[in-house]
Design a protein around this nucleic acid. Structure first.
Length: 550
RNA sequence: GCGCCUGUAGCUCAAUGGAUAGAGCAACGGACUUCUAAUCCGUAGGUUGUGGGUUCAAGUCCCUCCAGGCGUGCCA
């Protein structure tokens, strides 16, 4: 079932086609049609500026073109009225009858309303968070987690087969430093005087790990190899990360270990393959990949002069691994601080023969944490940071997730701990949840009074004639369009939620749903129930709870 | 130096190149004998960082400059 917006788009396309056939306007590319919601209600429910672009191409006035198009529009039950503005906009007014059908669709589809089969038969592997297991997650990771999880939810809702993946960088310099840091702390706790190097991890959690080792092994581990400490620390930290993610309602299908890619020989295979393709060369004992041939600004080292591989090499192998699982496309959610890395990664995949555009990289701008406007530091290595865990405990999962998602990806996000705890429209999650709870309360009261929600056919929806009621239905009807248009920018969904909630709260304060007029009560109960369904469906996608009582 | 992102009301943010740039917060004034006042209604608040350009139309696209963030490793 198509949405009203889709119907109108089709009608306009047809009309242009007919008008062109009759020679009233020239031939045009009908794919360019864009239907939008006008800012002012006197301009109708939907509008299009298509006449302007056509007029330009054909040297006629927009008004004349618009008139010609309108003459060719097939009248049907959806459209109450079409008019051409003096400038040349074509404005559509939707019939009440069609709006009532929206309510029917919402009731029938319920939890599925807004979803669809856009992605049927398509598989997507989405990688997000992928924080190094060298310390707990911090606030910045929270944005990637909330965003990646939401996008994954949306894609799944639209019918894609979604694989959620976390890539663990568990080899290399940083992880070695982690092992050394933990060993040093452990030995210090045993009373040894061990120097602590500057590039090591200084966080409190390293000492905690040292303490755990003392508890578990006493002093028997003091001569163990560094790899023992690496494995121990890695597992402990990773376990902590998984717990934080679970608390944040973020789950992964797979955790892929970089180390495992080495052990399975996949990394070596990639090197051989690249060598075979003649994209490798030696420079001062180091081995470089000719990424420059694929639009990178220079070639990149994949194996250092000392024979150790770079992180980049593991990543190439990992992406090859992903492609070999035959996805329709890949998504990587990365912090903006990794953007310098995008070109070389894409270049390496081109070298392997994978199409460049089958990897979609979504960069989010960095997060700064503040309290009452004062910055809070966030360096993992220096150990001065607030963990995501602490933030969740302080402000709650719902408020945190909403906050992370509510800003556009490419804007810097200032996460203010005090602001996130406020319970007003500065922090709209409660506002939206409150609307949901209020509706549940109404439905509950009706039920206790013995009034059951009727089916579509048994309720006289034509009693919903108020401007406010019709405006709400129009807004609800846009949800399926909204979600398809903003898959990768879910901040729009938070705005949508607020708009729906605002309309509801306003309505609630001016009119009573349950009254002595049973028919009207049934009609209004149907309306608020549909609002509830839409609010719930969106909140679910955002990983936010929808309480029945507050 | 070069590259990416951002700059809109006092604050946080909206506005696929469209019609008179919108919300909330804060401020001020109102609304609970009613289905939840975590709500609602009203008032006030703007040279869209700067200067040019593109066009029927620019907050939006292009260029200059200013300010902030990030990147530019044989770090990850």
């Amino acid at each position: 079932m198509s949405t009203i917006k889709q119907e109108i788009t089709e009608l306009v396309k047809e009309a242009i086609y007919f008008a062109a056939n009759r020679g009233e306007i020239g031939n045009v590319d009908v794919e360019k049609i864009y239907i939008e919601i006008p800012k002012r209600k006197e301009y109708g429910d939907f509008t299009t500026n298509i006449a302007f672009s056509l007029a330009k191409e054909q040297g006629v006035s927009p008004h004349i073109v618009a008139k010609a198009i309108v003459r060719s529009i097939k009248k049907n039950e959806t459209i109450e009225h079409v008019e051409v503005s003096e400038h040349g906009f074509i404005n559509f007014f939707i019939s009440k009858h069609r709006l009532y059908k929206v309510l029917k669709e919402i009731m029938e589809k319920d939890t599925e309303f807004g979803g669809g089969d856009l992605g049927r038969g398509k598989k997507v592997i989405i990688e997000f968070v992928s924080a190094n297991p060298t310390g707990p997650l911090h606030v910045g990771h929270g944005r990637g987690a909330a965003y990646g999880d939401t996008v994954a939810n949306i894609l799944a809702f639209l019918g894609y087969e979604v694989v959620r993946e976390y890539y663990i960088n568990d080899v290399g310099t940083q992880i070695d430093n982690l092992g050394k840091s933990v060993k040093a702390r452990y030995l210090q706790l045993l009373g040894q005087d061990v120097p602590f190097q500057d590039e090591w991890y200084k966080g409190e959690y390293i000492i905690d790990l040292g303490n755990k080792l003392v508890e578990r092994y006493g002093n028997t581990a003091r001569d163990y190899d560094i790899s023992f400490f690496i494995d121990f620390a890695k597992l402990e930290i990773l376990e902590g990360i998984k717990q934080t993610l679970a608390k944040f309602r973020v789950y992964f299908t797979n955790f892929i270990s970089e180390k495992a890619l080495y052990e399975s020989g996949e990394v070596k295979k990639v090197v051989d393959k690249l060598d075979e393709l003649c994209y490798l060369y030696k420079d001062k004992e180091a081995i470089l990949l000719k990424t420059k041939e694929f639009d990178d600004e220079k070639d990149r080292v994949i194996i250092r002069s000392d024979g150790s591989p770079t992180y980049f090499l593991g990543d190439i192998a990992y992406h090859k691994n992903k492609f070999e699982r035959s996805p329709s496309f890949l998504i990587n959610v990365l912090g903006q601080d990794h953007h310098g890395y995008v070109e070389r990664l894409k270049a390496s995949l081109s070298a392997l023969g994978y199409p460049k555009d089958s990897l979609k990289i979504l960069l989010y701008q960095l997060v700064t944490l503040t309290r009452c406007g004062n910055p809070v530091s966030m360096s993992t290595r220096e150990g001065e940071f607030v963990t995501l865990d602490e933030v969740i405990d302080e402000v709650g999962v719902d408020a945190s997730r909403f906050f992370f998602i509510s800003k556009k990806l490419d804007t810097h996000l200032d996460f203010d701990l005090e602001l996130a705890k406020k319970r007003n429209l500065d922090n709209p999650v409660f506002y939206v949840q409150y609307a949901h709870a209020r509706i549940c309360s109404i439905l509950d009261k009706a039920k206790k009074m013995g009034i059951e929600l009727g089916t579509y056919d048994s309720v006289d929806l034509s009693l919903l004639r108020l401007e406010e009621e019709l405006s709400i239905i129009k807004k609800l009807s846009l949800f399926p369009d909204e979600i398809r248009e903003t898959i990768y920018e879910p901040s729009h969904l938070t705005l949508y939620l607020i708009e729906v909630a605002t309309r509801f709260h306003n309505y609630y304060n001016h009119y009573r749903v349950i009254s002595s007029n049973l028919d009207l009560t049934l009609a209004r109960l149907t309306l608020v129930n549909c609002i509830r369904i839409v609010l719930r469906n969106v909140l679910k996608l955002l990983g936010i709870s929808f309480p029945e009582k507050m």
